[in-house]
Design a protein around this nucleic acid. Structure first.
Lengths: 138, 138
DNA sequence: GAAGAATATGTCTTGACAAGAATATACTCA
DNA sequence: TGAGTATATTCTTGTCAAGACATATTCTTC
């Protein structure tokens, strides 16, 4: 899993995987399309191979690389476990409220901010660090 | 997409995301559970935030981090496009055969290896580089 | 307003890794 | 067997990022 992610996190390797999605390919083909030099492609393929993401067939001097499904499937299974995060709206109602409730209990009865003031502070601030770092959709 | 993968590819950040899967958490909580030092956790959170993977709520001195669904959903959509690779068995029948056929055509009628010999060469060799680099399941 | 708590930021060092260049290996065909 | 083709490996170098440590920032409470 970690190994899969690390392999995919490199842009050129990601492109290689994208190329292999269509069909298996010999190294030279990818060298073309990626505009990388052959040794570099071979090295990236080595990493992908070590991660179990690709599979080689030998055809004379050529090596034909193909995707192996297992790691990608594993990744998909992992991500499925996060599904509820964008389906149900757990997070807000359960987690944070419990958090806050615990806090209320801990600090005894003392002078404290009005509910309104506290609300302001607690509000989600997507736009805190400016520079459009994540899109507002969803 | 690339940014998401790069963020997740670091083991500690991956763990942070796993922690946040259950519920939003303040930084100190994660510092505990991860056994990292506070500045390190803050920096990782910064990366996750820049990648749009997490979201902050300010509660007094505390920052409560929560997962944002968008990037994960995007990742899931991406991986869905690979689904056919472990469902249909395209790869073999389509891609490689076309590849070989093209090759046959290119080289004219010359003395060449018997079909049997060629078959041997072309066989998939999972076990080429020893050391169990990928599991044979699937 | 001073002390303490929770978190963020800056700087430095070190290790990992990608790219480049040169070379090795393996196969084909004449 | 020798030339050519396709791919892998080795070595070096530069870049970037993670960890450690010190310090800044912001809020709370007394």
């Amino acid at each position: 899993m970690m190994e899969t992610l690390q392999a995919l996190a490199e842009p050129n390797r990601f492109q290689i995987v994208e190329l292999l999605r269509d069909r298996p390919r010999p190294v030279g083909d990818m060298v073309h399309r990626l505009g990388l030099r052959q040794p570099q492609v071979s090295k990236h393929l080595r990493v992908l191979s070590d991660a179990g993401l690709v599979d080689v067939r030998v055809d004379a001097q050529r090596r034909i690389y193909a995707l192996r499904p297992a790691p990608l499937k594993e990744l998909e299974v992992w991500i499925e476990r996060y599904r509820r995060i964008w389906e149900g709206n757990f997070q807000r109602l359960d987690g944070v409220l419990a958090e806050l409730k615990a806090k209320e209990k801990k600090r005894g009865r003392t002078k404290r901010k009005s509910t309104a003031e506290k609300q302001r502070n607690i509000e989600s601030n997507h736009a805190e660090r400016p520079g459009g770092r994540h899109d507002p959709r969803l």
